[in-house]
Amino acid sequence: MQHLRITSPGALTPAVLDLLRADPAVTGLTCVHGAALRPEGDLVEADLPREAVNEVVDGLRAIGVHREGSVHVVPVATWTSQPAHDAERETPGSSADAVVWAEVTQRAFDESELNWTYLTFMTLATLIASIAIVLDSQVLVIGAMVLGPEFVPVAALGLALVRRRPALLRHAVRALVVGFVVAIVAVTLAALVARGLGWVSADDVTAPRPATAFIYTPDKWSFVVAVVAAAAGVLSLTSAKVGGLSGVFISVTTIPAAGNVALGLAFGLGDEVRGSALQLLLNIAGMAVAGWLTLAFQQAVWRRASERRARLVARLRHRGT
Rank of each mutant, 00 (worst) to 15 (best):
His3Gln: 15
His3Pro: 00
Asp23Ser: 13
Thr27Ala: 10
Cys31Asn: 13
Arg38Glu: 15
Pro39His: 07
Pro39Lys: 05
Val44Arg: 03
Leu48His: 00
Asn54His: 12
Val56Asp: 04
Val57His: 08
Glu68Ile: 04
Gly69Arg: 08
Val71Glu: 10
Pro83Met: 05
Asp97Ile: 01
Ala98Asn: 06
Glu103Ile: 07
Glu111Phe: 14
Tyr118Asp: 01
Leu119Cys: 06
Met122Arg: 01
Ile128Thr: 11
Val134Arg: 07
Leu147Glu: 04
Ala156Tyr: 01
Gly158Gln: 06
Leu159Met: 11
Leu159Phe: 05
Ala160Trp: 07
Arg163Ile: 00
Ala167Phe: 06
Leu168Trp: 05
His171Thr: 04
Gly179Arg: 06
Leu189Gln: 09
Ala194Asn: 07
Ala194Trp: 14
Gly198Met: 08
Ser201Cys: 01
Ser201Asp: 14
Asp203Asn: 05
Ala207Ser: 15
Thr217Arg: 15
Phe223Thr: 10
Val227Cys: 12
Ala229Gln: 07
Ala232Leu: 10
Val234Thr: 11
Ser236Tyr: 08
Ser236Ile: 03
Thr238Pro: 04
Ser239Phe: 10
Val242Gln: 15
Ile250Lys: 05
Ser251Phe: 06
Val252Asn: 05
Thr254Gly: 00
Asn260Ala: 12
Phe267Ala: 00
Gly270Phe: 12
Arg274Ile: 12
Leu280Ile: 02
Asn283Ala: 03
Gly291Ala: 05
Gln298Cys: 02
Ala305Arg: 15
Arg308His: 13
